[in-house]
């Protein structure tokens, strides 16, 4: 069996589950296993309908008040109980603030391997070889697991995009058979309560909505200092687009939090996205990689941003960006673009 631990909030399954279902089904097919989705919560049965769309062979609900809102100790105890009893070959969760929060605990408790942030896998004999990005995605590391028993994997968001549903059907992507429904009982009553959620709120107070922008010009740490960020504003203005930023720009106080694009900021998919002085870390990519046209400007030809870009310029951004701004301005003013070629 392959076990997916589903993530949900506010009575909705999160999009990451669809990616886990892709990875889970691939593993299930290749290793001749079945695919089970476990839903943990106060009233997980309310999510069964949404869960069917993931196309599992079986859905297991684990019901306990302590499982919702999310609590790492309770989730660790529950997932360890299922993993010990049912010995799935692989237990999958998202590399998300929930998945990477509890899965390492379960793995360590059981003394079993954990592969974090998996982006790809291949079969190698009777084992799976998982690829994880290292050195901020400048390198890939391929690892396999050892020993007998469940192996734990967190999947990087964006790495296993679900196939678009085909025209004909709305049904589950697989053979369409009805998943078996099961419950799993755990006794969490003895669990000491040592961590509790007090609240949850939006980090940014501003109202900047980059989600609807057609063109976004985003700057990163390569801009080096706050004073020079104006170069991004100017290009955005010339293009009639919005300004965005990578996380270090925001952490350094060059721009407010609401400008941040990426996993802990906004997710955007404009017609045109400029990534300027941005290396292309996984957490940035998930926020922008579905943009229709991506332009990357970076002095490092190996920067992972070029893996998602459509057009790239390898050069010093301080010389290139003002030239682009100038050319765009000339174009908009109706005069022939200045410069070479």
């Amino acid at each position: 069996m392959i076990l997916i631990v589903a993530e949900h909030a506010d009575d909705r399954l999160k999009p990451i589950n669809r990616e886990l279902a892709v990875l889970g089904r691939e593993l299930a097919v290749d290793f001749g296993r079945t695919l089970t989705v476990a839903i943990l919560g106060r009233d997980p049965s309310s999510l069964i309908e949404q869960c069917r769309a993931l196309g599992p062979d079986r859905i297991v609900t684990i019901t306990d008040d302590r499982l919702e809102p999310y609590n790492p100790d309770a989730w660790t105890a529950a997932v360890e109980a299922v993993a010990s009893e049912e010995t799935p070959a692989f237990v999958l969760a998202g590399h998300t603030s929930t998945g990477y929060d509890f899965l390492p605990r379960v793995a360590a408790r059981m003394g079993r391997p954990l592969v974090p942030s998996c982006i790809e896998w291949q079969r190698h004999g009777d084992r799976a070889v998982f690829t994880r990005p290292v050195f901020n995605a400048k390198m890939h590391m391929r690892v396999t697991t050892t020993g007998e028993g469940p192996c734990f994997v967190t999947a990087a968001p964006g790495a296993f995009p679900p196939r678009e549903p085909d025209e004909s059907g709305s049904g589950p992507p697989q053979d369409g058979g009805e998943p078996r429904l099961d419950t799993f009982d755990v006794d969490l009553s003895g669990l000491p309560v040592r961590s509790t959620r007090i609240g949850r709120e939006a980090a940014a107070t501003g109202t900047l909505d980059l989600g609807s922008a057609d063109i976004i010009v985003a700057g990163g740490r390569g801009i080096q200092e706050k004073e020079r960020f104006g170069l991004i504003d100017e290009l955005a203005e010339a293009l009639g687009g919005a300004v965005g930023a990578s996380r270090p720009v925001v952490d350094s106080g060059w721009r407010p939090r609401e400008y941040q694009i990426g996993s802990s900021g906004q997710t955007v998919s404009p017609r045109l996205y400029f990534a300027i002085g941005i290396s292309g870390a996984v957490q940035h990519l998930v926020g922008m990689q579905s943009s229709r046209c991506i332009v990357a400007i970076n002095k490092d030809a190996d920067a992972p941003i070029f893996k998602v870009a459509h057009y790239g310029i390898v050069d010093d951004l301080f010389s290139v960006v003002p030239e682009i701004t100038k050319t765009v301005r000339a174009l908009k003013a109706g005069s022939p673009p200045a410069g070479g070629a």
Binding site: T144, F306, V308
Partner: peptide, 27 residues
């Protein structure tokens, strides 16, 4: 518990078109 099989540079995605030349030309 995990065994490293290989570390390698990611394959280049040929989708990207690199634009060369002086800054003005590339722009």
């Amino acid at each position: 518990l995990c065994r490293v099989m290989e570390v390698r540079a990611p394959e280049r995605d040929h989708r990207v078109q690199m634009l060369s030349g002086s800054p003005a030309e590339a722009a």
